[in-house]
């Protein structure tokens, strides 16, 4: 949003102003995002300095950095959902190298993975390219990775491959798998969102919306949740046309 100052002052004293909660929420989220951005930059600066690893509070700093990024991602998801709803999201699919994309996304979690002693594998053909909105899908994968990190015991596998003309992205872990309620909807993520049990539902809802925003020749992207897979835990599966 570019702020252009309106030089002409309008007299608002006689005009009853209708307060629109949505506008307040959007502008506040936007404002919070700026603050969190500064916080992340500051923490990053501290953590990349040479002495960082020597600090007694290093573990806490890494954790704080991770939480700040989580807040930032949540705020982005809120803003994005608002824009998608208003049909003003600047949807911008580009040709993306999957190998590059998945490694860059995963790199953001490198430090935390190390602390939790989780082994992350990225399995993708370096020649694989696909068209999608990088910002939307990196939000989706980041979200899935966050979830996987909370539940995995030792291993997470991220993979991408072309399958029947679609791109199939999978995030799998070796944890206990999704709760049965979440799988009941059988692919219908919107219905399985549980606002009372631990999760806010925002991540899944965002992911489903992001998937469905992608279309080609009348086919929409979609989201599937399964248990099992190659690591016998939760599988988060994204199909993009």
């Amino acid at each position: 949003m570019i702020g252009i100052s309106n030089k002409k002052q309008t007299n608002t004293t006689n005009v009853p102003v209708v307060f629109n909660m949505a506008n307040f929420l959007v502008s506040s989220v936007h404002d919070m995002k700026n603050s969190v951005s500064m916080l992340i930059c500051g923490l990053d600066k501290v953590l990349t300095s040479a002495e960082a690893a020597e600090l007694s509070t290093h573990t806490e700093l890494v954790q704080m950095n991770h939480e700040a990024k989580r807040i930032n991602n949540r705020l982005i998801q809120l803003l994005t959902l608002y824009k998608l709803g208003q049909k003003i999201y600047p949807y911008d699919p580009q040709s993306v190298c999957l190998d590059d994309f998945l490694r860059t996304t995963a790199a953001q979690y490198a430090q935390l993975l190390k602390f939790r002693e989780i082994h992350l594998e990225v399995r993708v053909n370096p020649e694989l390219y696909w068209y999608f909105d990088e910002d939307l899908i990196s939000g989706v994968i980041g979200n899935a990775l966050n979830n996987a990190m909370r539940h995995a015991h030792h291993r997470i596998l991220i993979s991408a491959a072309e399958c029947e003309g679609k791109l199939m992205l999978r995030v799998e872990d070796d944890g206990g798998g999704y709760p049965a309620e979440l799988l009941e909807g059988n692919g219908n993520v919107m219905q399985s969102v549980d606002f009372h049990g631990g999760s806010t539902g925002l991540g899944l809802y965002f992911s489903a919306m992001a998937a469905r925003t992608h279309r080609n020749h009348g086919i929409q992207g979609d989201l599937y949740l399964e248990n099992g897979g190659s690591l016998q835990g939760a599988c988060f599966i994204l199909h993009l046309p």
């Binding site: 936007h30 995002k33 600047p90 949807y91």
Partner: peptide, 9 residues
């Protein structure tokens, strides 16, 4: 930019 803008598309 703070957010993705229309001009980027």
């Amino acid at each position: 930019t703070a957010e993705k803008t229309m001009e980027a598309v």
